[in-house]
Design a protein around this nucleic acid. Structure first.
Lengths: 131, 131
DNA sequence: ATAGGCATTCCAGTTACTGGAAGCTCAACC
DNA sequence: GGTTGAGCTTCCAGTAACTGGAATGCCTAT
């Protein structure tokens, strides 16, 4: 397969696939003319990565996950630990965003939003938030 | 004030403050010796930005917010619109993360996490997720 | 004079791509 | 055979918002 075909099948832009090769995440073969030659395993790897990325795993996580997937003697505990770590980070990020969201929503509610200059949002931003 | 003092008072690293000057977000004066000279207004601007950033506003949003804050004839509607936009983006991000989180949590729960290689997490990643 | 701490600039790296330019290859059509 | 057009190649630069580090200058105190 050429890159265009795997791009369609994996749902990843060709640019991204080239980038993944650049950073050594996948290693497609080459045709004599210099074109990349993708085999089924390459496509599988790309789909695997696409799915992992959609779950928020970093590229480095993907490297590890691919290696674990390749390793028949892996312990599932390793995979679970990685996923749990990642889950904790997502939870932390959600918590942070929720705190932001709540504060911001309060400010938006408090702002009448008309043609007058008085604005609780700006007042909050200008207030000293020490501590 | 020198940069070290505003750094402490604003809670921002000196590096970040220099960066903010680089990109034209703030414009401190200069001592004869080349040191930056920060006045109260500069400190206020930095605290304003720090607070806005902590609410997730982008640097470009901060530019606009600072300008609105400076403009006594602003309409609070402008500020509210900006904040509402931002709020919507945060909500979207939270929704995306929650979807991730739920899928990931299911997978983590399904994985026994012992020394055996069998692993539902890897199985999911390797499965075809078409559509 | 010299040591310490603070300040300066500039360069490079981070994450994961994305856009664009210049140029080669391949298949098809006249 | 020549030419078009799509698809492929590489390489460079830019994104967001910093952060780290090197080399160097300034200021105060001993």
């Amino acid at each position: 397969m050429n890159i265009g075909e795997v791009a369609i099948k994996s749902g990843l832009p060709a640019k991204t696939i080239r980038y993944y090769e650049d950073i050594g995440l996948i290693r497609p073969d080459r045709h004599d003319n210099g074109y990349r030659l993708f085999r089924q395993t390459h496509l599988h790897q790309l789909m695997f990565v696409a799915r992992a990325r959609s779950l928020g795993f970093s590229i480095d996580d993907c490297r590890v996950l691919l290696a674990l997937y390749d390793d028949d003697s892996r312990a599932s505990a390793q995979v679970k630990a990685l996923a749990q770590d990642h889950l904790a980070q997502i939870d932390a990020k959600i918590a942070g965003l929720r705190a932001m969201r709540d504060t911001l929503a309060d400010l938006v509610d408090a702002c009448h939003g008309d043609s007058r200059p008085d604005c609780p949002i700006l007042k909050d931003l200008a207030a000293k938030h020490h501590g």
